[in-house]
């Protein structure tokens, strides 16, 4: 058995095509991004080597840290909202009527492109005839805020849109994972008199712990490099109050012609993601030990 399962040829055959692909298409750009990060380069003319100057500038760049703070908030927000997604998936997989239809409906938003989603949410938040403010006015609030123009409100407003945008993605994953649990296990617990809540907590969630861990990493890494809706809906504004790392990087590299600095931000973002992922793995690993 072990012999079959450690056949070097088969392993290479299975792994190499994919590995080759990401080494050339992802790692070459990563290495080059690191390289450009050491240069003064507008992306057009000659490059000059400046060592770590971009990084020392980065460390002191208050705008960068502001955007990094927003990215971290988003990561936290996304990670917490996983609980909600998981809850909905648990309900959808329990034996309730219409679950199948509901599930399909719940996943529809995820089909929309970010162009459509950005348009939709700009309409929802429109200061005078948007849905949110129409509703607020109808319940007697005279002067509802302009959500995307208010520096203190713009970030939470966009977070809500992002959480909504990704709901389908995570519900889909959780749903498939929960459906994968053998029915016999749940049936046995039910016969033993376990309540649905107990079944969810003691059986279902531990069984899909591996999937949950993966989604935590995906949610956090995905949030740290998030770009789409923020760029389209606010462009990082007003005055940087909704700027995140990726939009800041884009602004520097493509807006200000500072490709060297933009690359340094990109590379730094990669490092942040690495550290955070490592931390998550450490944290979830210890939890696992306690559980079992």
């Amino acid at each position: 058995m072990d012999k079959v399962m450690s056949n070097k040829f088969v392993i290479s055959l299975y792994v190499l095509p994919a590995l080759l692909l990401i080494l050339t298409l992802i790692y070459v750009p990563i290495v080059l991004t690191g390289y450009y990060g050491l240069m003064k380069w507008d992306g057009i003319g000659e490059m000059t080597f400046i060592g770590l100057e971009n990084y020392t500038k980065l460390i002191q760049d208050a705008d960068f840290w502001g955007s990094a703070y927003h990215s971290f908030l988003l990561a936290l927000f996304s990670a917490v909202s996983l609980i909600g997604y998981l809850g909905i998936s648990l309900i959808l997989t329990s034996k309730i009527k219409g679950a199948n239809t509901l599930r399909k409906i719940y996943l529809i938003p995820m089909l929309l492109s970010s162009v459509a989603i950005a348009q939709l949410w700009s309409k929802i938040y429109h200061p005078s005839n948007g849905m949110v403010n129409s509703f607020l006015q109808s319940i007697g609030i005279d002067n509802p805020p302009a959500w995307l123009a208010e520096p203190s409100l713009v970030l939470p407003a966009i977070f809500v849109a992002i959480i909504w945008q990704y709901a389908g993605f995570y519900i889909l994953i959780y749903y498939a994972a929960l459906k994968n649990i053998p029915e016999s296990l749940i049936e046995a617990a039910r016969i033993d008199g376990a309540t649905p809540l107990q079944i969810a907590w003691k059986i279902k969630i531990p069984l899909i712990a591996g999937v949950i861990k993966v989604t935590i990493v995906l949610a956090i890494v995905g949030s740290l490099k998030y770009f789409d809706l923020i760029y389209v809906m606010t462009g990082g504004g007003p005055n940087g109050s909704s700027e995140v790392i990726a939009s800041y990087m884009y602004q520097k590299a493509f807006g200000s012609y500072d490709f060297g600095y933009g690359s340094a931000i990109g590379f730094f973002l990669l490092l942040i993601c690495l550290v955070v992922t490592w931390l998550i793995r450490k944290l979830t690993a210890t939890k696992e030990e306690i559980q079992y």
Partner: peptide
Amino acid sequence: FVKGFNGLSNDEAKGP
């Protein structure tokens, strides 16, 4: 200026 001008794109602002 129109309400919420800092959050409106030029296209949106054209509307009113």
